[in-house]
Design a protein around this nucleic acid. Structure first.
Lengths: 191, 191
DNA sequence: TTGTTAGTGTGTCATTTGACACATTTGTTG
DNA sequence: CAACAAATGTGTCAAATGACACACTAACAA
């Protein structure tokens, strides 16, 4: 539970008692590369905290064609909020691109947590707002930055993603073709 | 306060008493086209509910160049959450593209509202989550759909935006140039 | 080891796009 | 109304991109 405790300790101000209480609601699970966390069309009844590793969120549009929606590099939360919070079927799938340790918060445990005490309800709200801010940032990045700049940012900030996701997946994540991403890489090897 | 009451009535289950109590925290303001709601670099200390009209969120990058971040067509909420919730300086500006009626919730009123009662705290959370879902959807749309398809969607679903935003603004919103959007329009006039 | 497969590197070419220049239209103001 | 400014329509052209084809490499299984 170290990675999880560390994350909460650094990002939120919790007493040791609160921290232990919170972490007790999570279950530690080791998964291997290729493990499916959830699948398009089914319910997502847990929130996953990714310790050190990369998760791949994608969406099938037509036969065979996958579109990458997101690449999560731990430490971070990963779930489908639409499904988890609102009980809808997930519109995308999530697969581990690396062996990694997950800390899983099942929906029942989440509910008892947020319903017993206003403190935890507000805590959940904070986590959700953090998520929202991250998404805002992502939206802004997509509008403002070129694909090349975004690739260079990944290279600098997300080594695990660069190492573990294929060029095709990264290209799809950046919204371009495999070939164009390759051109960008070739050009920047010299730099 | 009709538009505001109607919105809450249709989207949330509130008693008439709760509804009145909630709406009492808002202040009705009529603004004309061109009115600035908030500006890049300053604090946003209110949440705006847009009755019937269009708001333009944009960002200056370099001299003169504006990038459109969002176009809000009422009825909807409009604010900079990063600034409003976390007290940071706004990184973008917001201007009315139409004469319209706004329902303004000042931050002090918001705070008293969410602090007095868990009910309103959870209500605020719901509104924020709704916002988050909208953003998720936007992210997904940008990844999955072509600029042409997104323009046609606007044409179908957001007549006020089409009528009141210039081609340049809409092009910027869609992430393309004025000329390319023009080509798309020319092509689709025949359809 | 060999064979198979997935991933990656590379060239070609048609298409799309952005940038620029300028004409036309619309709207506003005196 | 006239004059001006702003927004929109249009053509040209260089650059970027996606699609396709195929070679090369690495990883893995038989």
């Amino acid at each position: 539970m170290d990675a999880l405790q560390l994350f909460f300790k650094e990002s939120h101000h919790l007493s040791q008692g609160d921290l232990s209480y919170l972490v007790d609601h999570f279950e530690e699970v080791s998964v291997t590369k290729g493990t499916v966390l959830f699948e398009q069309g089914s319910m997502v009844d847990a929130v996953y905290f990714v310790g050190e590793g990369v998760m791949h969120r994608y969406n099938y549009v037509e036969e065979g064609e996958k579109i990458t929606l997101d690449l999560h590099e731990g430490p971070c939360f990963c779930t489908n909020l639409e499904s988890f919070l609102e009980g809808k079927k997930s519109q995308d799938s999530c697969v581990a691109l690396t062996d990694t340790t997950l800390y899983v918060l099942q929906k029942e445990k989440y509910n008892t947590l947020v319903n017993t005490n206003v403190k935890w309800s507000n805590f959940a709200k904070d986590i959700i707002v953090e998520n929202l801010m991250k998404m805002l940032d992502q939206l802004k990045t997509i509008s403002n930055k070129s694909i090349e700049q975004r690739y260079l940012d990944l290279l600098k900030n997300n080594p695990l993603i660069i190492q573990n996701a294929s060029i095709a997946v990264i290209a799809s994540y950046l919204g371009t073709s495999r070939e164009t991403l390759h051109r960008i890489r070739r050009k920047n090897i010299l730099v």
